[in-house]
């Protein structure tokens, strides 16, 4: 039991608790805040794995932009506590078993997969430098990169069109 493992478990616990809280909370704003907790925990995990740039991006973009957007929308729409309606019988009865089944399936696959066993236990904290990432991004992945910029452009246009008031 060395330090990284302990840190891992702590962060993992925080992430799972945050996720559970997201499910159990009734007011959407509380769910949003729980999600932020999850994201911070995940950022910590990324740091643990040596992906410092990704951790930073996670906090800045995910936590700082996307979640803030969520909170703005919640406040804009004046979301209240959830109602207790229950029209979908299927979701009520089949939901949990299915979710458990999917999770279990994936977990079983992971546990039994021989490919994972052949992976060497990670070398100690090889920090991935930003320089390496950017080199990759602008060399091998330049095409998807340009496409994503195009995608963001489309998203901006879409958001503007949607948010216009009807004239």
């Amino acid at each position: 039991m060395n330090a990284p493992v302990i840190i891992f478990f702590v962060l993992a616990a925080i992430a799972v608790l945050g996720a559970v809280s997201l499910i159990l909370q009734r007011h959407p704003i509380h769910s949003a805040l729980s999600l932020i907790v999850v994201m911070v925990a995940l950022a910590g995990l990324y740091l643990l794995m040596g992906a410092e740039f990704v951790a930073a991006v996670q906090i800045i973009v995910y936590g700082g932009a996307i979640m803030v957007l969520f909170i703005f929308v919640i406040m804009l729409l004046n979301a209240g506590e959830e109602e207790r309606t229950d029209f979908s019988k299927l979701a009520t009865y089949a939901g949990v078993p299915l979710a458990v089944a999917v999770t279990g399936l994936i977990a079983a696959a992971i546990v039994n997969s021989t490919a994972a066993a052949s992976l060497p236990p990670a070398a100690p904290a090889t920090l991935t430098s930003t320089r390496t990432l950017s080199t990759l991004l602008f060399k091998e992945f330049v095409y998807p990169f340009e496409l994503t910029s195009f995608l963001i452009l489309v998203a901006i246009l879409g958001a503007i069109v949607l948010a216009q008031r009807e004239n």
Partner: peptide, 8 residues
């Protein structure tokens, strides 16, 4: 080190 399996 933390085994990859844990993360996954």
């Amino acid at each position: 080190m933390v085994p990859t399996n844990y993360y996954v």
